[in-house]
Design a protein around this nucleic acid. Sequence first.
DNA 1: CCATTACATCGAAATTTCTCGATACATGTA
DNA 2: TACATGTATCGAGAAATTTCGATGTAATGG
Lengths: 97, 97
Amino acid sequence: MDRDEILKALSNPVRLDILNWLKNPEEHFADQEHPLDMGVCASQFERCGLSQSTMSSHLGILHRAGLVTTKRVGQWVFYKRNEEVIAEFLACLQKEL
Amino acid sequence: MDRDEILKALSNPVRLDILNWLKNPEEHFADQEHPLDMGVCASQFERCGLSQSTMSSHLGILHRAGLVTTKRVGQWVFYKRNEEVIAEFLACLQKEL
DNA sequence: CCATTACATCGAAATTTCTCGATACATGTA
DNA sequence: TACATGTATCGAGAAATTTCGATGTAATGG
């Protein structure tokens, strides 16, 4: 868990939105073909108006920071919040900030 | 308290250092002429190698984000951590992140 | 195989952030 | 007033981030 890398990942409003949407997938991605407990399909995030490559970049930054997990199922990649890392990060901030 | 502005302020290693140094002024600024309970004099931060104007800019960003307070005494400006805002920010993250 | 779909990566342009020296502003002192 | 010290702001260049379209890679289905 790299605290500073996480803070950089969180310094962007698009990525904050993504993390927030993933808190309530059924609210924001009700139209997904696949069951939501698998996670949210990468392409679902493009609705915010940014291009596919841009969203893929943001998702990659969140993933490398450890804030989300990914699972490949067939052609699709499903994203979920990584609550363990998020909790660890928050506990770290409480101590170190 | 603007959560996103604070996250941006925290996304820079120099500013994280400043906040960390201010947790133990007596450890990092023992040579300050003025009593440390007034805060840490702006010029004290220049020892990290950055220029006076650059450090002033970083301190300004921390101040506008509410993470530090300033008190002008004569020619000097003294900086302290704003523990109230920091605590409020941490509580906000616990809820919203 | 070949075409299609989903996602990642590359290269470049636009924007933002970081940094500096020069300069302006504020305060104290001779 | 004139000068010295401490801090903030300005303008510009360097560096990092954001964004895009084009292209590459992985998996599916005909």
